[in-house]
Design a protein around this nucleic acid. Structure first.
Lengths: 175, 175
DNA sequence: TGCAACTGATTGCAAAACGCAATCAGTTTG
DNA sequence: CAAACTGATTGCGTTTTGCAATCAGTTGCA
């Protein structure tokens, strides 16, 4: 791993980690999309990441300590990528980024409903989500009481918007 | 301005705005360093930005609506760059980024004291800071009661650490 | 008046990063 | 045994980056 840093400033060092156009996208898909395999990330990416870029970034994120890789028992060639605690603690940053983007940028309704719910849920919801991610990726026991998972809730809201927009389209196709 | 976006996802769109290695650095220097002029940013940058990169990013940030440029009355060739509300609302993101970097990355003590104070101050301090920036860059009246400015407080803390490390160096040079 | 220092940039150029398409060897499925 | 799928890798042309040098106009000082 490279140890040459431009400065010891926290913001600069953070930028050196994900100051590019793909690293955070990959982490977003793992965190909010539950993606764990190479092909899942490659084909599921709405932004259309190229396979060589994906391979390069996964490798880089592993070197940085944000991801780990393990064999998938169900398939000798399959690899499962897991988030580390370092990556899981990005959830609040993702939430803020989403909230900021929703205010200032031309976001689409269906892709921003998750950000909206995450923002409204606040730090409490973020903590619950991070606990779920720790359970899922680090194997920690479930501390919180049983309740619908944050990711499933966000996903359901996304699908509800998609369904509503589709039915709106039937009633008023040219709207 | 380009209107081609990879997707309408808030996180993706945010990355398209500052998903590079310099844009946030420039905004950081303006927000926390109070830099307003080209040369100030060029020579004051601890990361050593090149003049062509700086010119390109300033132009880009203006096109994106994050900065505005105005003539400096004191010098016909001088330009004063101002933050817009869009850029000022990045303060909470900066605070989270700094807090995350402080935990996970090899930050230097003197350059992370600001991040530490900003984190401890919480949203209340961020709001006060944003109000100061609005006054400074947008000319809004000062709503809050008179008190030492957040930037000055952060700067003083930085200088105190630098001074302490220097005197430590005299007592124990090889520490 | 003359000249150095300073203003916000711009240009040339080499290196690196990007991104698309094709390809790879091994694994599983039908 | 062939097709589909696994996580990648390679080649190659385009774009972006970043360093050094340079630019024209402005200001301050002698």
């Amino acid at each position: 791993m490279k140890t040459e840093h431009r400065s010891g400033c926290p913001i600069n060092l953070s930028l050196e980690v994900f100051g590019d156009r793909w690293s955070l996208i990959i982490l977003r898909d793992m965190i909010f999309g539950g993606k764990r395999h190479f092909r899942e990330m490659l084909n599921g990416s709405i932004e259309g990441i190229a396979s060589n870029i994906l391979a390069d970034r996964l490798k880089r994120l592993m070197e940085l300590g944000m991801l780990t890789k393990a064999d998938d028992p169900s398939h000798k060639q399959k690899a499962i990528y897991s988030l580390t605690e370092m990556a899981i603690t990005l959830v609040p940053i993702m939430a803020h980024l989403g909230a900021w983007g929703r205010v200032w940028l031309p976001v689409s309704e269906e892709l921003s409903i998750r950000a909206e719910l995450l923002e409204k849920g606040g730090p409490e919801l973020w903590e619950q989500f991070m606990d779920e991610l720790r359970h899922e990726h680090l194997g920690t026991p479930v501390a919180a009481p049983e309740r619908p998972s944050v990711r499933a809730t966000l996903q359901a809201a996304y699908e509800a918007v998609v369904a509503r927009k589709a039915s709106d389209g039937i009633k008023a196709p040219a709207a």
